[in-house]
């Protein structure tokens, strides 16, 4: 029998999760749809005044992207838990860290990345000045990855519960706050023509911290959720 290295197993998980997400469509399309619809609601609620919308756009885009990412996170481990393949993963003789990392990466590629790519379109709809768009995309790229890591902890803790959805938001949203603060501040700085790189660097630092620590918490939380 041939043994696989950790990186081969990493790729196997990534490939399998991407494949099943792309085949079932709703997994990557629904958060995008949510993002678009909620962003449409804001002008309807606030009023069509372009100047006011332009002022609020960075905050709106970031908050809605954050919510969309959170809603997508709920399904991160749920189907695996229901069909028992999560148990197969937890029973792997491989170290848990790379396996969990692969799952989170696959999830980000199918939920966070599309959100980032669609954000310029919604920025235009919300009258955001063009000078902020590149920074919006970059900040969402880093930020949504952090959100996926933090959200994965919440998803792992609530996966065994019947009413996971709303509870997930209660425990995860307070932890999202620093990402929201730095992400939207970077976009605002770019629009105001102030330096934004330090703020993006702070997001990068948070990302590093999340990569290092979150998979450990996720692995622990999954073992707890399976054992009840």
């Amino acid at each position: 029998m041939k043994r696989m290295g950790v990186s081969a197993v990493f790729v196997a998980i990534l490939r399998r999760d991407l494949r099943s997400a792309l085949r079932s469509g709703s997994e990557w399309a629904n958060p995008l749809l949510f993002f678009a619809i909620v962003c449409t609601l804001f002008p309807l609620g606030i009023g069509p005044d372009a100047r006011q919308l332009a002022l609020l756009a960075p905050g709106i885009l970031w908050v809605v992207a954050l919510l969309a990412s959170m809603m997508a996170t709920d399904s991160l481990f749920r189907s695996d838990y229901d069909d028992g393949t999560l148990e197969q993963m937890l029973l792997s003789p491989m170290p848990m860290y790379p396996l969990v990392l692969a799952k989170i990466l696959a999830h980000w590629l199918t939920s966070g990345l599309p959100l980032c790519l669609m954000s310029p379109l919604l920025a235009v709809i919300l009258q955001m000045p063009m000078s902020g768009v590149p920074v919006l995309v970059v900040s969402l790229l880093i930020g949504s990855a952090i959100l996926s890591f933090i959200g994965a902890i919440g998803a792992a803790l609530t996966v065994g519960l019947r009413k996971g959805g709303l509870l997930l938001s209660l425990i995860v949203l307070p932890l999202y706050i620093p990402v929201l603060i730095f992400g939207s501040a970077a976009v605002k700085s770019a629009i105001d023509g102030v330096v934004y790189l330090p703020t993006l660097a702070l997001l990068g630092a948070l990302f590093m911290l999340a990569v290092a620590l979150a998979p450990l918490a996720v692995a622990g939380a999954l073992r707890i959720s399976v054992d009840q």
Partner: peptide
């Protein structure tokens, strides 16, 4: 996983064990 084929499912199960 219902979306995957039998071969894909089995290959993943083996990969989980490093095989």
């Amino acid at each position: 996983k219902p979306q995957l084929t039998a071969v894909e499912n089995l290959r993943w199960s083996c990969a989980m064990r490093g095989q």
